[in-house]
Design a binder for these strands. Structure first.
Length: 254
DNA sequence: ATGGTTGTTGAACAA
């Protein structure tokens, strides 16, 4: 069972890349972020033709998440319980015996900004929700664009990024509160080396110079931890023409 | 140098 996450930064632009990558990587479940389209525009039929059933929660211009699986996802939730939010950033569903939660975490723009405060409030609400989800569904996978680099191994230049957004102590503490529910960063179960990134800025030839951050994560619950065979980051689509700024990340379990 | 690139929408915003 291969489970992946990819921030595609516009599914309209990146649909050819998604199709190519599905054929290459053959994932069983894929969480997408930043589809940047309304739900009604989501290409469900094209994906079905490729062997994937899909659910989406989109909006005009920004955000938007979707979940693809070999069998139809059920029991879909698109709102954080008790947290009013017009932004379409979460999608939870059941696939087989797994509960999947796809997150497009708020970016936060700059430490101390209104958007940063929204990010921390949003993360707290999601953690509260996940506490209930993991109690109901022990086999839980939480994956997506977390917009947080878990620690300095995940940052190309920790000094430059020190206490900057995506790396600040309150953001990392919010992520730790999530992990403390009994979730594990699958990549770090298999690889403790620094310099393994999932996002590179479009500017300054950042990908070519590997000036990136690891901000896309696949978290697995304790019940799934021992089943993780391998985990990784697929840099290949980032080399393609007109790429997303994020690479797909994945875990193989079972 | 508060820069630079990309995407959506149509000059500004978000990342």
């Amino acid at each position: 069972m291969k489970i992946a996450s990819w921030n595609v930064n516009s599914l309209k632009v990146r649909m050819p890349h998604l199709e190519e990558w599905l054929a290459l990587a053959k994932p069983d479940i894929v969480a997408l972020q930043e589809i940047k389209m309304e739900t009604k525009a989501f290409p469900a039929e094209a994906l079905r033709a490729l062997g994937y059933e899909a659910v989406a929660s989109g909006q005009k211009t920004y955000n938007g998440v979707a979940l693809l699986a070999r069998t139809a996802p059920t029991d879909t939730v698109v709102d954080i319980p008790g947290f009013a939010d017009e932004q379409r950033r979460v999608l939870a569903a059941t696939v087989g015996d797994l509960r999947i939660v796809d997150l497009y975490v708020v970016n936060g723009q700059e430490v101390g900004s209104d958007k940063y405060r929204y990010k921390l409030d949003w993360l707290a609400a999601v953690a509260d929700w996940l506490r209930d989800e993991i109690a109901k569904h022990p086999k839980l996978v939480v994956l997506g664009d977390f917009n947080i680099a878990p620690d300095d191994r995940d940052v190309h230049d920790p000094e430059a990024w020190h206490e900057q957004v995506l790396c600040s102590t309150p953001e990392r503490a919010a992520l730790k509160r999530m992990l403390d529910l009994g979730l594990h960063d699958s990549f770090r179960l298999k690889d403790d080396t620094p310099g393994q990134f999932s996002w590179w800025d479009y500017r300054q030839a950042a990908f070519r110079r590997n000036l990136g951050l690891r901000i896309d994560l696949v978290l697995v619950s304790e019940a799934l931890r021992a089943s993780v065979q391998s985990a990784g980051i697929d840099r290949v689509p980032r080399t393609w023409e007109r790429p997303s700024d994020h690479a797909p990340v994945w875990v193989e379990s079972g």
